[in-house]
Design a binder for these strands. Structure first.
Lengths: 343, 343
DNA sequence: AGGCAAAATGAAATGCATTGCAATAGGTGT
DNA sequence: ACACCTATTGCAATGCATTTCATTTTGCCT
């Protein structure tokens, strides 16, 4: 037995803490402390241990560590890749959100488990936590159905959601002030003295509904006979928007203002409308959403609503950590501002 | 002691395999086998165990499992988020690649550890493997320096890379046939009888160099006095490309054909050139790369080179798995095709 | 020099599941 | 009824690091 252990030690990889302890002529607990930066170990000893560990190419077995500590140091981030081809996810906006979350988690030295396979219902999410595969969950993009989230709350699973921040969610949500976003778009249109507005988006998504409501509120306040129509884009991809837009424009009177749920959708609108002889900003005002990089370089440069993407990541993470520590953090709403360009 | 165990069992969460064994009136190994789908267990017994486990909300502790099995069932995917703001990563193309990898890993029931913090040098990568935090690595986007990859090979770390597939890499690389991509663009230009070509991209990136070389080869073959200039875009973001392009166009004769390293860059070119009074396709032919969705809807619709993004994911994963199993899979080159649009 | 606090270190228990090997039970062939 | 095979199941060892508690060592005060 001791025999085997010694043999192992001689191999480059595959040695354990006992081996290091022997080589550094200290006990296992001391090695553990030295490696974890505990102050209970003499600096000279630590240096020796570190040196031996380095020489052996030793790294603490994370699984044993997690097992013992009963904490995984891992957060699962759920991105709905499934609907990727649907276009929503491909949006650079989602990517920025992910980058923000990633960075915030890095700072806290947490690992990201990305959309683990089979995490489709509340039970599997609860299992992931119970099995200590992750300490908490972050849902990005409200593909997440409300009913599942409610179940998760009941199961006491720690999670936060990027999405609509409504009255009193049972869980912690972080999202932009979508109603304000809608209002900003509306004001842009009012300033241009437009009458026939068109909202493009699927208002079954709460986030998008709020934007719509903001837009409508401004139309009402303006009190000048503004008409707001809705073009319901269930399939939120370029192609999806293009097809519904093409059909709509051939059956309806042309709008003089369009508010699209994303810049991507705005681009689709521009393309379809151009084919119908309508050019922005000559024939209609246009406001998109998310301020993705290409929006600034499109023809015309797209006026859009910007969200605080990067901040979103750190807030989501902060709230989740509080939740994991047993607190009950409140939902948070982020700022939104309009970037006025050619359209 | 037994006391404690029993108390625990009564709690909804936090029970272990022993508890389930007791409740199901079998031994721990039997529970293990039942849960892992072993055929060494009687079906009636399995059903009973499953039922008890479900009732207790029990899920096998993944960390204990991984510790024992000495396999993590996890693959680390390294995306250079750091250069995100640099624009390279924000490219929807990367996202598609990630989606492809994600899907392929899901199929094999592997978890994705996304760009773990601090994974910056060969040592930390080796440590990640040694500590059994992951069984292998996938590098997406050649932010990965060659020298580090070489060190990783020496350290016998299992990994694969998305990037340039050159002569005899010491490691397994998967990438598109970039030279072909360049040739396809060149042929498009030849067909349009252009003379002054401009290549936009940083040829210090091997992938991009190959595209350049393909383009140049076609120019030579055409043998009709074609001149190929290079606009070296070190900062690959929109803004970066815009600024170098603006400077270039004010100091040089206008090209009649432009091949950009990405659709994103192509959009930047369109925007800058338009300001200089040049409009595609009237004044110049333009070919982008990646076929990102907005390319089709831009003004003009951008001719571009398409890569087999989705396939890339599954091939990368397949090769990596072979590598983990001790084999030495060969690099693979994927198809590339040109999508001709307005430009 | 005696005594006590502080610093450093070690022994042993602990967390949880998997697996090789042994053991038991139920069945079949002769 | 005996030998033997198969299907199930359990025992005990194992993988690895952390943590509590006790112990030793060192430093400082009087």
């Amino acid at each position: 037995m001791k025999q085997r252990s010694k043999q192992r030690g001689s191999l480059a990889m595959g040695c354990n803490m006992d081996d290091i302890a022997r080589l550094a002529k200290v006990s296992k607990p001391t090695v553990s402390r030295a490696l974890s930066g505990s102050h209970l170990v003499n600096e000279a000893t630590r240096a020796r241990v570190l040196e031996v560990a380095r020489a052996q190419g030793y790294a603490v077995n994370r699984n044993a560590q997690k097992l013992r500590q009963a904490r995984s140091g891992t957060i699962a981030v759920i991105l709905d890749f499934g609907s990727h081809r649907g276009g929503r996810i491909g949006d650079p906006f989602m990517f920025e959100l992910l980058a923000g979350v990633s960075e915030a988690l890095s700072v806290r030295n947490q690992d990201i488990l990305l959309s683990p396979p089979g995490l489709v219902d509340a039970q599997s999410c609860a299992d992931l936590i119970a099995s200590r595969g992750a300490d908490g969950l972050i849902f990005l993009g409200q593909g997440s159905q409300e009913t599942m989230l409610t179940e998760l709350v009941r199961a006491d699973v720690p999670f936060v959601v990027w999405g609509a921040v409504s009255r009193n969610n049972a869980y912690c949500a972080v999202g932009s002030d979508n109603a304000l976003g809608g209002r900003l778009a509306g004001k842009h249109f009012v300033g241009r003295e437009t009458r026939r507005w068109l909202f493009v988006g699927n208002i079954e998504h709460e986030e998008i509904l709020l934007r719509y409501e903001g837009l409508v509120a401004v139309a009402k306040e303006a009190n000048s006979g503004i008409e707001v129509n809705t073009l319901r884009a269930v399939d939120m991809s370029y192609a999806g928007v293009c097809s519904v837009a093409a059909e709509w424009i051939s059956n309806n009177e042309a709008p003089d203002a369009v508010f699209a749920f994303s810049d991507t959708a705005a681009m689709a609108i521009i393309s379809v409308f151009r084919d119908a002889g309508l050019v922005a900003p000559r024939d209609y005002a246009l406001v998109g959403y998310n301020n993705i990089p290409p929006a600034a370089h499109f023809t015309p440069a797209i006026t859009t609503i910007e969200q605080e993407t990067h901040l979103a990541g750190s807030i989501l993470v902060e709230k989740l950590m509080q939740r994991i520590d047993g607190a009950n953090p409140k939902s948070a709403m982020l700022q939104t501002r309009i970037i006025i360009r050619e359209s």
